[in-house]
Simulated scan of single mutants.
Amino acid sequence: MPVKLSWSALKQTRGYEYAVRFLLGGLATVFAGVVSAGCGVAIGGLFLALPAIFCASATLIESHERRAKEKSGLRGDRRGQQAAALDAAGAGLGSIGLAAFAAVFCVTVSASVIAAFAAAILAWAAVSVSAWLMRRKLRATTRHQGEAQSVRGRGRLT
């Protein structure tokens, strides 16, 4: 599935869905602040990575896909689950990039905060895109090998 920007998706999202995302993101930030105050900033920082927005996004993606299929007169449960799973895979790849961001920032922040942010953002982008491209290539290779084995199993190739 190619990555693309869809402006029409903004029209499909209802106002309350944006409010849910904003609320969950805000609550996650407040929670991280409370943990920071009680346990120190190192522990509180770990809670800033809480995927509150992902949780809201996954449920919204699932409901949008399900609704789209149901408008066509089909059951959309499976399609919604697959769309949410694909979003989760992307979030996982993005979290690898987030780890790269944290590592680069930690190493470079003593020189300059602005330079550290710039370098960390570049590292995040490079690692996230590289992880996505690698996953895409591995999926294509695995799919191609599976098709070849399927054909061999039917006795068409020797």
Rank of each mutant, 00 (worst) to 15 (best):
A140G: 07
G97R: 01
V30S: 15
S57A: 13
S36E: 08
L122G: 15
R75C: 13
I114K: 01
H64I: 08
G155M: 01
F31R: 13
T59G: 09
L122I: 06
A116N: 05
R152M: 09
L48Q: 08
A89N: 13
H144Y: 10
A83F: 00
I61E: 02
L98E: 02
S110G: 10
L138V: 12
Q145N: 10
R152N: 05
R135F: 11
K137L: 14
I114G: 01
R143P: 02
F101N: 00
L24T: 05
S6R: 13
V30M: 12
Q82W: 08
A91K: 00
I53W: 02
Q12F: 04
R154K: 11
R156A: 03
T13F: 14
V113F: 08
L133A: 13
A89H: 03
A118F: 09
E62C: 15
I53P: 02
T59H: 11
V34Q: 13
H64C: 06
G153T: 05
S63Y: 15
A85P: 01
A88W: 00
A120T: 11
R143I: 05
E65F: 09
F54W: 10
P51W: 14
Q12C: 03
K4E: 13
G92N: 06
G26Y: 15
G38I: 09
L10V: 12
A88R: 00
V151R: 04
V30R: 06
L48H: 03
V109C: 07
T108V: 06
A58H: 09
L122N: 02
R152K: 12
R136C: 05
R66P: 00
G97K: 06
L27A: 08
G76E: 01
W132T: 15
A148M: 11
D77G: 07
A56H: 03
K71M: 14
A131V: 03
W124C: 13
G153P: 09
P2H: 01
L27P: 05
V113Y: 05
K71V: 13
V113R: 10
R139H: 06
A85D: 14
A102D: 01
R14M: 04
R66L: 03
G26K: 12
A99H: 02
I121N: 07
K69L: 14
A126E: 08
A120E: 04
A58I: 05
C106A: 13
I114R: 01
V129G: 10
L46W: 14
A140H: 09
V107A: 07
K4G: 02
G25P: 06
G94P: 01
